[in-house]
Design a protein around this nucleic acid. Structure first.
Lengths: 185, 185
DNA sequence: AGCATAAATAATAA
DNA sequence: TTATTATTTATGCT
């Protein structure tokens, strides 16, 4: 590929006979090593690129988008940019790991995100509905078509959803032998 | 929450005063530690849950889906299942790490995937195509497989590209408007 | 340099 | 398990 732009770190280190120091005295091999390591350490902390970017933006210094973190990890940036970003990321990550040792809560506070942000469920039964369904199940685990229709109407859920709930519920029971041992009184 | 089903490992280890050995003599704490470690080691090798599942299925023994690997990592399985799966994953991962040391090529061969699988190039839709897609979306945001095929043919785009466009479009809409037409309150 | 969004991956209802 | 949604990553564009 003919490309007259400044090459990325990724392109430079992939060349077999390239010196590890480029003409500006930047150690490309070191950057590559750090980038790989950074990703693993980030994942070990359970953080996303978005979280890192937002956290860095919150600190003093320049702002970083998710894209910027992504491009650093992929080394899809120029050596000069990488050289500039590396110490920033290194410092931040060390701090984050320190906080993490003090507890998950500290890390989340440091990162600045809502610590309790949960993945949204595709669809879900309300707690009341689950209680009601379990009550119906206790009375009769194998309701007839008519009964399913009535339960669905009562709880204001789709009939098919209720039918499948009973199927899955029975299935679980079938695979389980120690059901009552774990039951909360 | 009242739940009479067999609890998952995740539920059991989260209880403060729970013994780390359950009544079957399964070391829950050890399983939790392994699951966490497994994920990090998997990511370090650059493997997806899908790849692990497929690779395990290719070996002798039972088949495992991406979902199964996901549930193990999240500990969203019963202690009995976890106990059964743990040694299988451990053995496989050790082997995979060994292959990886011998070179990336060896790992990919072991995993069984196409080693050169590249990410698909990002598609740029023409403005006309976007207008047309939005019109289709207004009429029906959830087209059937048959309809997707027809739209793709009509607009002269790859079927998969059109399918994903609808997925992402629904996603964007969901994030934008609080009004969720698909979900039961 | 970063927004918008396509593609890929993880999680989960069916 | 499968089929689909939820979430994250990657990239075309400017």
């Amino acid at each position: 590929i003919t490309c007259s732009e400044t090459p990325t770190v990724s392109q430079l280190v992939s060349k077999p006979h390239n010196p590890s120091l480029d003409e500006d005295g930047i150690n490309l091999e070191e950057i590559r090593e750090f980038a790989k390591n950074f990703k693993i350490r980030r994942l070990s902390l359970g953080l996303t690129q978005t979280q890192v970017g937002q956290a860095l933006t919150a600190t003093e210094g320049p702002a970083y988008s998710q894209s910027a973190i992504c491009r650093f990890e992929k080394l899809d940036i120029t050596p000069k940019s990488a050289q500039k970003l590396k110490p920033v990321l290194e410092k931040w990550l060390n701090e984050a790991e320190l906080r993490n040792q003090e507890g998950q809560q500290n890390l989340m506070e440091f990162v600045g995100g809502e610590p309790s942000k949960k993945r949204k469920r595709r669809t879900s039964f309300t707690p009341q509905a689950i209680v009601a369904l379990n009550a119906y199940f206790e009375k009769n685990p194998l309701p007839t078509g008519q009964e399913i229709t009535e339960i669905a109407k009562e709880l204001n859920y789709d009939r098919e959803v209720v039918r499948v709930w009973f199927c899955n519920r029975r299935q679980t029971l079938k695979n389980t032998s120690k059901l009552n041992v774990f039951q909360i009184p």
